[in-house]
Each structure stands twice: as structure tokens, then as C-alpha cells.
Simulated assay, not measured.
Amino acid sequence: MNKVTQAIAQRTSHRFSYAWVVVAVIFLVLLTSAGIRATPSVMILPLEHEFGWNRSTISLAISFNIALYGLIGPFAAAAMQRFGIRPVVMGALVLLSIGTALSTLMQMPWHMVMTWGLLVGSGTGVAANTLGATIVSRWFEMRRGLAMGLLTASAATGQMVFLPLMASMVEHYGWRSVAFLVAIVAAVAVPLVA
């Protein structure tokens, strides 16, 4: 390698890349999605007490959520490829916000299946590891492992950040406060993606 090539390589290696801004925004989206996906775990007992539902009824909605979280990935990736990442992710965040906000009105078990199972499950399925892989493959040629590692860490980080706060809110203000919190967090993330 001659001196000119080394100088160019050195200058470009220190330049800031917009790809890291994209990673930061997607990290926040995935963090939000992970926090929302973990929300029903702190709501099980309050829902049992308020509505008299048994755990199997509540678990049915959570099962739909988990199933859609896994099944939506390939379709979400195809939608991102066809329509673009930004509109698909914004749609998922809107779906998450609407689904969690509507859950505060639920009275029947099927309401929970519709809100937390179908709407939230579909939204979190879009904002999952498939999103991280799509971002990394589009924006990175070098440092893909680092970028993917950061995005993968968002799931555990989201649960670590949200669960203690949500548990405290359920204890002091009830389960609806938690649903409103995650609805607001998802809505606030929409402009970040835009």
C-alpha cells in the first residue's frame, strides 16, 4: 500500500457514518418493541383480579402475540423490501401504540386476544430481529457483527429498562397506566423513524 492510499484509508476510517445514526434509531425501536412485548407479564395478576380471568385465558392472548412475533418476520422483511423500511416500521409503531392504548378499554377476553394478541403481536413481529438484520445488510459492509450485536442487545435491554418501571406502575397506579405508558413510548418513537 502506498502512502497516498494509506492516508485516504486513515481519513475515511475516522469519518462518522450515518449508518450508526440508523442503528441508534433502530436500537430504540427494537428496545421499545421488546419492552412492549414484555408488558403482559406484569399485567397477568391485575387482569386476573379485575376481570376474574384465569391464567389460561390471559395466556391465550400472549400465545397469539408470541406466535405472530415469530411468524410476521418473513412477511415484514418482504414488505420492507417492497415498500421501504421507514413506512413499514412507522406502521408497526402506530399499530403498537393503537393496540396497547385500545387494551385499556378491554372488558372481554377476546378484546385482549385482539389487542395484545393480534395488534401488538403483529407490530412486535415487524420490529424484531428481522428488522435488525435488514438494517445491517443494507447499511453495513464492514462492522456488520458489531452493528448486529448492538441491535440484538436491544431486546434484553428493553426488558431490563421497562420491566422494573412497569412493575412499579402496576403496583401504584394499576395496569392501565402501563398500557398507556407503552402506547405513548411507541407513539413517541414514530417521529424518530420519520
Rank of each mutant, 00 (worst) to 15 (best):
V170S: 07
E48W: 06
R138P: 00
S122H: 02
G132T: 07
T115A: 12
G121D: 08
S17I: 01
P74H: 08
A34Q: 05
F83T: 03
L192D: 03
F180L: 15
F64H: 06
V21L: 15
V94N: 03
V126D: 01
W20H: 01
K3T: 11
Q107N: 15
V42C: 07
A133R: 02
W110K: 02
A153H: 05
P191Q: 09
A34F: 15
I58L: 15
L131E: 05
G73L: 14
M114S: 04
A187D: 05
T5F: 00
P46C: 13
S103A: 15
G145M: 07
T157S: 15
A183E: 07
V42L: 08
I8Q: 11
I62E: 04
S33I: 13
L28Y: 00
P40R: 10
F64S: 08
R37S: 07
T130E: 08
L60G: 06
F27E: 04
R143Y: 07
W110N: 02
F51H: 13
H172Q: 12
M90C: 15
W20C: 01
L146P: 00
A153G: 07
Q6V: 02
S168T: 06
L105S: 15
L105K: 11
P109W: 12
A153L: 05
G174W: 08
F83C: 03
R86E: 12
W175G: 10
V182P: 00
A155E: 04
I85C: 04
V193M: 13
T32S: 12
S63A: 10
W20V: 01
F51C: 10
L150F: 04
Y69H: 11
M106H: 02
L151V: 00
M90P: 01
